[in-house]
């Protein structure tokens, strides 16, 4: 109990230490809102670091069982703030120092992460949405793999995730043509989990996240872990890992509760452990 208390205060403390994002925890959901609306929530180094920190804190806080990343104002995230880079900048170094660590933090987080794509997601903002487990997309939102339009390649894990989500051919098409993808098309190609009307946006985003937050969080983390592992293993190796994963799930309190609730014909009350 003491441990939980200290983690609570850690997540709470999180609220006041950010300048480029807003962070709050409500009903088991950590809301991470990119907060540079006058710049369409474009990335600066500081924002990279603050997202990384907020994800790390959320991953370690017991009371957080789902994470939403969304944007303040009319955009989700327009990508790198170009006023924060100059032409002479070593872009490799920029990625290694700012974007790589943020993307790894997101990839290592075993809690479900939902991108609430409220508006345009362009460039690295598109990549950020791709790194999430779900993309709930506002009907007025759009995606843009803008990199090619300024002579660059999609970065921050973009091609890695995009090809897995939409397939090789579509990933190439979006990356080479650099054209806008509407919410409706995003749904058609499997990029959007769901398209939501503007009027219902807040309510539906919240409901989706809170529903996930009430599921067996540890099992969700294991599903994420082993699905990712499957891409790097032979079937034989994967089946060995899968057995480890199921052993871990079988030791959770939520599994015990799930089985008990099933035999008692009632709805399971999961605690995430």
């Amino acid at each position: 109990m003491l441990k939980k208390g200290s983690q609570n205060s850690q997540a709470d403390k999180g609220c006041s230490m950010y300048e480029t994002i807003k962070y709050r925890v409500e009903n088991g959901v950590a809301w991470l809102t990119l907060n540079r609306p006058d710049k369409l929530n474009a990335f600066t180094s500081q924002m990279n670091k603050e997202i990384q920190k907020a994800i790390k804190i959320s991953a370690g806080a017991d009371e957080v069982r789902a994470i939403i990343i969304t944007g303040e104002g009319r955009a989700f995230c327009s990508g790198q703030d170009l006023s924060d880079v100059d032409e002479g900048m070593n872009l490799g170094q920029k990625l290694r120092e700012d974007y790589g660590p943020m993307m790894e933090q997101i990839a290592n987080c075993e809690k479900p992460i939902i991108a609430g794509v409220n508006g345009v997601a362009a460039g690295a903002g598109f990549s950020l949405a791709l790194a999430c487990d779900f993309r709930l997309v506002s009907e007025k939102a759009s995606f843009l793999n803008a990199f090619v339009n300024i002579g660059l390649i999609p970065d921050s894990g973009n091609l890695y995730y995009l090809s897995r989500i939409v397939g090789h051919a579509k990933a190439l098409e979006l990356s080479l043509l650099g054209e806008k993808v509407t919410a409706g098309e995003a749904k058609n190609i499997g990029l959007a989990t769901k398209v939501i009307g503007v009027d219902e946006w807040n309510e539906q985003l919240k409901a989706f996240a809170e529903n996930i937050a009430n599921k067996p969080t540890k099992a969700i983390g294991l599903i994420k872990r082993y699905l990712e592992a499957s891409y790097h293993l032979s079937l034989e190796e994967y089946l060995k890992e899968e057995a480890e994963g199921q052993r871990i799930a079988g030791l959770t309190k939520d599994y015990a509760e799930g089985v008990t609730a099933f035999t008692e014909k009632r709805k399971a009350q999961f605690i995430g452990k």
Partner: peptide, 10 residues
């Protein structure tokens, strides 16, 4: 290499 949860068991 084993899953962190199973280090001691393994």
């Amino acid at each position: 290499i084993v899953a962190p949860e199973l280090l001691m068991e393994e």
